[in-house]
Simulated scan of single mutants.
Amino acid sequence: MDIAKDLALIDLLCARDFPGEHERYHTAWLGPGHWPDVSDCYAYEVALVEGLTRRHGEASRWGTVTLEQRIERGEAIPEPWGTLTALAIDVRTWIEPVSGRRITIAVADRDGESVPQPWLAVTESDPP
């Protein structure tokens, strides 16, 4: 579990060009991928949040319930926000000051059958 490595990845994705005109975001799974205990995943998320808060100030914290309701009504939610809604309920977002990109961290834990895993999205778009 290397917080410094994941923070460096976040820096890289904030600076890297996006893959294409219609794909204006980067996503990545964070952490080791296998947790000795589920609580270790949430502790890792806390450490990532602390590192990003030291760099960029307090995060905006929000939930995806409203986006989920909009999806259920048939509204198309742009990526990466649609995927984020499917993965997590609780989300934290910072704005990286140099690039202006949104850094969003969440633990993908909506699926009760899968092991929770921290997930990252870096994008130029605000949540819809």
Rank of each mutant, 00 (worst) to 15 (best):
103 I>P: 01
124 E>P: 00
112 G>L: 15
106 A>Q: 09
112 G>F: 09
108 A>Y: 08
121 A>K: 03
103 I>Y: 04
86 A>Q: 12
102 R>N: 13
85 T>M: 05
102 R>Y: 12
99 S>D: 06
111 D>I: 00
120 L>F: 05
117 Q>A: 10
90 D>S: 13
125 S>Y: 09
107 V>C: 09
125 S>R: 14
108 A>N: 08
101 R>V: 08
121 A>N: 08
122 V>E: 01
95 I>F: 03
115 V>L: 10
95 I>A: 03
89 I>S: 11
123 T>V: 09
122 V>S: 01
93 T>C: 12
104 T>M: 07
85 T>A: 15
124 E>L: 14
126 D>W: 11
102 R>V: 00
124 E>W: 04
107 V>L: 07
116 P>V: 02
85 T>Q: 07
118 P>C: 11
116 P>A: 06
100 G>V: 08
117 Q>L: 12
84 L>S: 04
109 D>F: 03
121 A>F: 09
125 S>V: 00
120 L>A: 06
87 L>F: 15
123 T>K: 01
102 R>T: 00
123 T>W: 04
122 V>N: 01
111 D>Y: 03
88 A>S: 15
91 V>D: 03
107 V>G: 02
89 I>W: 07
121 A>V: 08
124 E>I: 13
122 V>Y: 06
121 A>R: 04
101 R>F: 08
126 D>L: 14
104 T>R: 09
92 R>D: 06
117 Q>H: 12
100 G>A: 10
96 E>Y: 10
109 D>S: 07
107 V>A: 04
111 D>Q: 09
115 V>Y: 02
118 P>H: 11
100 G>Y: 11
107 V>E: 02
109 D>C: 09
106 A>V: 14
113 E>S: 14
110 R>L: 14
97 P>S: 09
86 A>L: 14
104 T>A: 13
110 R>Q: 14
86 A>W: 08
99 S>W: 10
99 S>M: 10
87 L>G: 01
88 A>L: 11
86 A>F: 01
112 G>T: 12
